[in-house]
Amino acid sequence: MVVVLSVIAMVSAAVLSLVYGKTSVIIEENAARALESSVLEVLPGTATVNMIRRSPDELGVDDPQEMREKGQETTIIYQGVDEQGQIVGYAFVGEGNGYGGVVRVLVGVDEATDQVLNVKILNHAETPGLGSRIEEEGFRSQFAGKTVDDPITVNQDIQIISGATISSRAVADAVREGLQDTVRIYRGGE
């Protein structure tokens, strides 16, 4: 009895570790490629993507300790460069709390004007058919042209999706907070 069950469990573990070893590489590659192609989407004209990593100490943030406690050890900013080597803009991943969990968005910002170019929803767990409509162009396009000086708040300059107030607010929060942090970091205290 014990032997049979142990053997089954061992065979199962062996098979799974084999499958995991094979697929985990592809899964990681997929994730990296997906993020890179997402950056291309939010920064049109980009040919190559640079990653800029900054740790809180380098940034000279008021309180690096506080940032570390929040788990924000490093901030990654994606910089888009076109074929001529000109910087197109920069992109960042923002997070907001939605109805079904964290909503992660990728925001592309124009190099010259610091205006938001595009917003892409990376992943979310919102209610299909309601909250999931944050993925629709009509909602996302409202963020284009916004800068740090805009409120980027629902019911002010962002119209909510009816029936999806919390999801809409999550996206607005993610864009607003991410934009504030990223512009400050990227422009280095301008």
Binding site: L5, T23, S24, N30
Partner: peptide, 24 residues
Amino acid sequence: KVRIPAYIVVIATFVTIVDLFMNA
């Protein structure tokens, strides 16, 4: 006596395989 746990292990193994392959 141990058929249910045995079945569950078998089923869980295949589900994990599907999950990993689909993710990849």
